[in-house]
C-alpha cells in the first residue's frame, strides 16, 4: 500500500498539513477564526494577479537559497552561511550594475555572474578550512555571515555611495526587471530572475544525478572514508560543494539586488533569505524538484501572511510558527513513518 518512495513523498505533505493544523489551533486558541485566517492567507497569495506576481517574486530567491543549502547537504555539509553568501552576492550584483557601463547583453550577465562568483568565494573559504584543516564548517560559515553583513554595510556607506544608507538604483542594462512580467501581474515586482532560479534547479539536478562529479559529491556525502578508499579526493569535493552552494546563494542575492529592489542598502540585520533556505531545503528533501516546490510553498505562506492582519486580524508571525512546525514534523519524520507503517500493517 505504501512503498518507500510514496512514504518519502507523503512525509512532507503530512508535515505541511500538521503544521497548518497547529496554526489553526493557535488561531482558535486566541479567538480567531482559522478558516478566515487561512482564507486571508490564500487571498494574499493568489487573490489576484498582483499578489500572485509577488508570491512568485518571493519564491525566486527561496528556490536559489534552498538549492544552496540542499547542494551542500548532499555532500554532507551544513552550509548555514547561505545568509552571508546572499548578502555578498546581492552587493556584487549591484556593484557591477553601478560601476560598469555596457549594453544589456553584456552588462546583465556580468552582474549575475559577479553575484555567483562573490557567493562562491564566500563559500570557498569555509570549504577550504574544512577540507584542509578540519575546521567545522558550521562555525566558520556563521562567522562569515557577520563578516559579510558588516563589510557590505561599510562598503555601501563609504565606497559605493557617499555616506548614504543605500546605493543608487542599478541602470536598466543591469536590471532583471521585466516590463512584460510586471504588466502581466498588475505591476508586481516579478522579474526575470524566476527563470534563472528554475534553470539553476535544473542544473543542480543534472550536476548531481547525471555527471561523474555529482556522483563523487554525493558519495562524499554518504561516506567520506569509503569515498577516499575508492580514490576520490574528498577535500576537493568538499571545497567544490561549498563553492557551488555559495554560487547558488550568491545568485539568490542577485535576485534581490538587481531584481526585486535594484539597490543594496545598509542592513540592520540579516535578510533571512538564507535561513529560510534551510527550511526550504529540508522540506524539499534536498532534491532540486523538492526545493522548487518547497520554495513555492514558503513563498506563498510568507506573502499570503501579509494579508492576514487586514483580512482576519491575525498577526503575520503566525506563519513563522507554522513554518517552524512544518520543519519540526519533517525532522521528526520517524514518527510519521512509524505511523504510516502501522497503517500499512493494519491495512493488510
Amino acid at each position: 500500500m505504501f512503498s518507500n518512495r510514496l512514504v518519502n513523498i507523503l512525509i512532507p505533505i503530512v508535515s505541511v498539513f500538521l503544521g497548518l493544523l497547529v496554526g489553526a489551533f493557535i488561531m482558535l486558541g486566541f479567538g480567531y477564526n482559522p478558516f478566515l485566517g487561512y482564507l486571508a492567507l490564500w487571498n494574499g497569495a493568489f487573490g489576484d494577479s498582483y499578489f500572485f506576481g509577488e508570491t512568485l517574486r518571493q519564491v525566486t530567491p527561496y528556490i536559489l537559497s534552498g538549492l544552496a543549502v540542499a547542494f551542500a547537504f548532499r555532500t554532507g555539509l551544513f552550509n548555514i552561511g547561505v545568509e552571508g553568501q546572499v548578502i555578498v552576492g546581492w552587493l556584487a550584483s549591484v556593484w557591477v550594475g553601478l560601476a560598469i557601463d555596457a549594453p544589456m547583453i553584456i552588462h546583465l550577465p556580468l552582474a549575475v555572474l559577479a553575484a555567483a562568483l562573490a557567493g562562491a568565494a564566500w563559500g570557498f573559504l569555509p570549504g577550504l578550512l574544512k577540507a584542509k584543516l578540519g575546521v567545522h564548517e558550521v562555525i566558520v560559515t556563521i562567522m562569515m555571515n557577520y563578516i559579510a553583513l558588516y563589510t557590505s554595510n561599510s562598503l555601501v556607506r563609504n565606497v559605493i555611495s557617499d555616506g548614504k544608507d543605500r546605493t543608487e538604483r542599478v541602470p536598466e542594462t543591469a536590471s532583471l526587471t521585466s516590463e512584460w512580467l510586471a504588466s502581466l501581474t498588475q505591476y508586481s515586482r516579478l522579474h526575470y530572475g524566476l527563470l534563472i532560479a528554475l534553470f539553476a534547479a535544473a542544473i543542480m539536478w543534472f550536476l548531481l544525478n547525471k555527471t561523474a562529479r555529482g556522483y563523487e559529491l554525493r558519495a562524499v556525502g554518504f561516506n567520506q572514508d569509503a569515498s577516499r578508499y575508492a580514490g576520490m579526493n574528498v577535500g576537493r569535493n568538499i571545497i567544490l560543494s561549498m563553492v557551488i552552494s555559495g554560487a547558488f546563494a550568491g545568485l539568490a542575492g542577485a535576485m534581490e539586488g538587481i531584481g526585486t529592489f535594484g539597490y543594496q542598502s545598509v542592513k540592520g540585520g540579516f535578510t533571512n533569505i538564507g535561513f529560510d533556505g534551510i527550511a526550504v531545503a529540508l522540506l524539499g528533501g534536498n532534491v532540486a524538484i523538492g526545493v522548487v516546490l518547497a520554495a513555492f510553498l514558503f513563498g506563498t505562506l510568507k506573502i499570503g501572511a501579509l494579508n492576514m492582519p487586514t483580512g482576519a486580524g491575525v498577526p503575520t508571525e503566525l506563519v513563522d510558527i507554522v513554518i517552524a512546525m512544518i520543519i519540526f514534523f519533517v525532522a521528526s519524520s520517524y514518527m510519521i513513518r512509524w505511523f504510516l507503517l502501522k497503517v500499512k500493517k493494519e491495512g493488510k
Partner: peptide
C-alpha cells in the same frame, strides 16, 4: 529527528511565537 534540523525549527518557533 536530525538534531540540526530540530534546532533550526526551535529557532524559527521561538522567534515566531515570541513575536506573535
Amino acid at each position: 529527528a536530525d538534531q540540526v534540523v530540530s534546532g533550526v525549527a526551535i529557532n524559527f518557533l521561538a522567534l515566531g511565537l515570541g513575536l506573535f
